[in-house]
């Protein structure tokens, strides 16, 4: 299974906000167990999708040079269940960006309905004492997360579909 929880970035405003979409197919592996007969998207995976959207926003702010890791989720509120067949939108806003890390506020929406609200705190690994353990290789932005941002730029060049 590939660890990417965004299908496409819909809108990207550097150092401000990002919106991404994820379409939930009943064929997703996790729906087999969560739960048989009642396919509910696990809350932790929605947080992961928000963190990936927020992580790209925070990473891009420093040209993907920082190792942006999810350090803490100070707040997460789950308002409703999200089911197979739903199309969810991750809406993330940058609250705070500093050398040591960043905070984003995120929402998961199903249409106009609010499903999840969360605050996510990211740390820049090299700005802490951990560089000695992790070295220079940026294992966070190895390609996939950056490529998905490339996709949104390509999509912007495409002619409107009629």
């Amino acid at each position: 299974m590939r660890w990417i929880w965004i299908d496409r970035i819909l809108e990207f405003k550097p150092k401000q906000s990002a919106r991404a979409v994820k379409c939930l197919s009943l064929a997703e592996d996790f729906f087999a167990d969560h739960f048989p007969g009642w396919p509910v998207m696990p809350g932790a995976l929605m947080l992961e999708g928000l963190a990936q959207t927020g992580g790209i926003l925070v990473g891009e702010a420093n040209d993907f040079k920082e190792k942006v890791i999810l350090a803490k989720i100070p707040k997460a509120v789950f308002h409703r269940e999200v089911l197979a067949g739903d199309e969810i939108v991750y809406d993330v806003e940058l609250l705070h960006l500093r050398k040591e890390g960043a905070t984003v506020a995120g929402k998961v929406l199903v249409g106009a309905a609010l499903a999840v609200e969360a605050e996510i705190f990211f740390a820049h690994l090299d700005q802490s004492r951990s560089q000695q353990f992790f070295g220079d290789h940026n294992f966070v932005f190895t390609g996939e997360l950056q490529r998905i941002l490339g996709l949104v730029r390509e999509a912007g060049k495409r002619p409107e579909q009629s």
């Binding site: 350090a71 803490k72 100070p74 705070h96 500093r98 040591e100 890390g101 905070t103 705190f121 740390a123």
Partner: peptide, 9 residues
């Protein structure tokens, strides 16, 4: 430790 950074922010 990570909370201290969160508090500062």
């Amino acid at each position: 430790s990570i909370d201290f950074l969160d508090i500062v922010f």
